[in-house]
Amino acid sequence: MEQKCSSASIFCLSVTGETKKCVSGLNTPVPSGFFFKDHWTSLVCRTKTFSKSDVIRCLTGKQIHMMGDSTLRQWFEYLGKAVPTLKPLNLHASGKSGPLMIVDTESGTLITWRAHGLPLRTNKTPMADLHYIANEIDNLAGGEHMIIAFDIWAHFTTYPLAFYVNRLAIIRRSVVSLLQRAPRTLVIIKSANTGFKDIYASDWLTWQLDCALRAMFQGLAVVLIDVWQMTSCHYSPDDIHPPSIVIENEVNLFLSFICPQ
């Protein structure tokens, strides 16, 4: 049934916007959505807000492997706190670089996070625990039960763009190989955040990297979670680590691609 909205309403897009399923390969428009009362309405695809029970149902039987920096670790930490049945395993590793793991044995859910390889600004950690994203992907069989999520940007702002592009090209080759051997594997890429302003970086430097990442993976059957737009338009103060309400909306978008409506 067609819905109409008042011409006086600036939120008509929430009614007439995108209603397609959240699947791999969708383009990201500008704007990709908007916040209203701390709720993100996506204009990319049809999303939902996940309760604790929804998250458990969505992730039953899934393996989620997260690789990247601390802004992706926020997703891992949010899921660990939001779902009581997900219990941490002590892998005797650094909490800043991982590897970290939470599991729910009843639902068969496994979620891991680890930092990407060097360059990395972190606490003292064994070199053996620092694995490159491409190597990790190459060692995974993939399949419809597996979700791979990664980001890579914050620790590269002090390096030449060519160095970063070379790293992306290596990761892209591994992603292409993974999708060839296991096409039903869901690969989700988190974009860069805004708000990184200190001696190491600025939004301008970060944007150069983010543009390269988007161009590198364009045309592949992967998902881009555009948190650049989400963090740039929220009223919270600039911070490389957004507040929990923003992370909640990011995770809801992430889960909407795992369990599309």
Rank of each mutant, 00 (worst) to 15 (best):
T41Q: 00
F254L: 06
L220T: 09
M101K: 12
K52W: 01
G68W: 00
V223M: 07
G98R: 14
F150M: 12
K4N: 11
L161G: 04
L224P: 02
R167L: 09
S53M: 06
F150R: 11
G17H: 03
H131Y: 08
L205E: 10
G25D: 03
W153P: 05
E248V: 12
H241D: 05
M216T: 15
V176A: 09
P119H: 11
T194L: 05
I199D: 13
G195L: 11
P29C: 01
D238C: 07
H39P: 02
I240S: 13
V187L: 12
E106I: 15
I199R: 14
G143N: 07
H92E: 09
C211M: 09
S97F: 02
D104G: 01
C259W: 07
V222E: 02
W204Y: 14
T41F: 01
K190T: 13
C233E: 06
V175S: 12
M216E: 15
A93K: 14
A162G: 05
N27F: 01
V55P: 01
H65R: 11
S6V: 05
A141Q: 08
L205K: 03
I170A: 09
M1Q: 11
C259D: 07
P260A: 13
S174H: 06
D69N: 01
I152P: 03
E106L: 15
E106T: 13
S107I: 03
R46C: 01
R172D: 06
A128I: 02
T122W: 05
Q74R: 10
K62W: 02
A215H: 10
L110V: 15
A93D: 04
V44S: 00
V30G: 06
D238T: 11
E77V: 10
C211I: 11
T28Q: 09
K21M: 06
L168F: 08
E248I: 07
D239N: 15
G143E: 08
I147W: 00
V15N: 13
Q63S: 12
R57C: 06
P126F: 00
L72C: 05
E136R: 14
A162K: 11
L161V: 02
F36A: 03
L253H: 13
H131G: 04
A162S: 15
A201F: 10
N123V: 03
G68I: 00
A154L: 10
M1G: 12
D104H: 05
A201D: 10
V15T: 14
H92F: 09
P126V: 00
G95V: 12
T112R: 00
C211T: 13
H155D: 12
P29L: 00
P183R: 07
G98M: 08
N139T: 10
K190G: 08
K190F: 07
N90W: 10
R173D: 07
T125F: 07
L255H: 06
E136C: 09
T122F: 06
F50G: 04
